[in-house]
Amino acid sequence: MRYCTPICKLKHVFSRNKLKLNIYRSMERKHTVGNGQRSIQSYLEQVQSTADAINLVDQATSSPDLFTFAFLINSPILNSFLSGLEYRKYLNLVRLFAYGTWEEYTSNQTSFPELNEAQATKLKQLTVITLAGREHRLKYSDLLSALDLENSRQIAQLIISCIYASLITARLDTQAQLVLVDAVIAGRDVVEKKDIERLKTVIDGWSMRCQDTMDQLSVEIRRVRHTTIKELKEVTEYNKTVESINQQLTKSIKVSSKSGSKDLDDSISDDHMDIDSSPASDAGFTKKRKQRTVS
Rank of each mutant, 00 (worst) to 15 (best):
R171P: 00
D148C: 12
H136K: 09
A156Q: 08
R134S: 14
S152A: 11
L138V: 00
Y164S: 12
T174E: 13
R137L: 11
I129G: 14
G133R: 10
L172P: 02
D173Y: 08
Y164V: 01
I129Y: 11
A176F: 12
T130M: 13
L138Y: 00
A176D: 14
S166P: 02
L138H: 02
S152Y: 06
L144N: 02
N151G: 14
L167Q: 07
T174K: 15
I168Q: 08
L149F: 09
L143D: 00
R171L: 11
N151K: 07
E135F: 05
L149S: 10
K139M: 01
L147V: 01
A176I: 12
T130H: 13
L147Q: 01
E150T: 13
V128A: 12
L172V: 10
N151Y: 09
L143W: 03
S145W: 00
E135M: 06
I168W: 06
Q157V: 06
H136F: 07
E135Y: 02
I160F: 03
Q175K: 13
Q177G: 15
Q175G: 07
S141D: 12
S145Y: 00
S166K: 11
L172M: 14
T174H: 10
L138G: 01
H136Q: 11
I155H: 12
N151C: 13
L149W: 08
E150G: 10
Q157C: 01
I163W: 05
E150H: 13
A146I: 04
Q175V: 14
D173L: 08
R137K: 06
L144S: 04
T174Y: 09
A156R: 05
L131K: 12
A146M: 06
L143Y: 03
D148K: 14
E135K: 15
E150V: 15
G133L: 05
S152E: 14
C162V: 14
R137C: 03
T169N: 03
A132N: 06
A146N: 04
Q175D: 15
A170S: 06
S152C: 04
L149P: 05
A156P: 00
Q154S: 10
Y140P: 00
A176H: 15
Q175N: 05
R153E: 14
C162A: 15
S166L: 07
R171C: 00
K139N: 02
L138T: 00
I129F: 12
D142W: 01
R171S: 10
Q157W: 01
G133D: 14
S141Q: 02
Q154G: 03
S145I: 06
L147A: 04
T169F: 03
I163V: 15
L158R: 08
R134M: 05
S145D: 10
E135G: 04
A146T: 00
I155A: 06
H136V: 05
C162R: 10
A132H: 07
R137A: 00
L131A: 15
S141V: 02
D142V: 05
I159R: 09
R171A: 11
Y164E: 15
L167M: 15
R171I: 01
Q154N: 14
L138C: 05
S141H: 01
I160N: 06
H136S: 08
R137E: 08
E135H: 05
V128N: 07
N151A: 12
